[in-house]
């Protein structure tokens, strides 16, 4: 599982960098999304995987239960929410840019000064 997730993270980072380097700004936003996901997974894996147990305890009296560390999950949830906010803003921004300049090409984005 660890190995598999490591590969997934690597592939996600790779695709994210590839997309970030494209000239199309919509693909740039896709790259940002991938980058966010890769990092959330990294956070998840780096803080230790516990399989088969929930991250909270049910109150069964007298019974000690294994539990997964809930903190990384809370962190990832927060990071997802923040990622959502930034992505949404980036989308609006790119859309506005498109409707003002009628182009999605990053090269035409560079200043002609």
């Amino acid at each position: 599982m660890l190995f598999l997730l490591a590969v997934v993270i690597g592939v996600l980072y790779g695709s994210a960098v590839y997309l970030l380097l494209r000239r199309n700004i919509f693909k740039l936003v896709l790259g940002l999304i991938f980058l966010g996901h890769a990092t959330n997974l990294l956070l998840f894996v780096a803080s230790g995987l516990t399989s088969g147990y929930p991250a909270f305890l049910r109150n069964i009296a007298g019974e000690t239960e294994m539990m997964a560390d809930p903190l990384p999950q809370a962190l990832i949830l927060t990071a997802i929410v923040i990622g959502l906010g930034v992505t949404a803003f980036a989308l609006v921004l790119v859309y506005r840019f498109y409707s003002v300049t009628k182009t999605v090409d990053l090269d035409e984005l560079s200043e002609n000064e």
Binding site: L20, I25, L32, T39, I82, F97, V100, T101, L109
Partner: peptide, 29 residues
Amino acid sequence: AEQLRGSIKYVTISFVASIFFVAAIGILY
């Protein structure tokens, strides 16, 4: 248009920097 140009660069670079921040937090934790 000029502002939007500037903001796209700013948002992208800031987001990438934040990603570094989160990754570092994960490793440290």
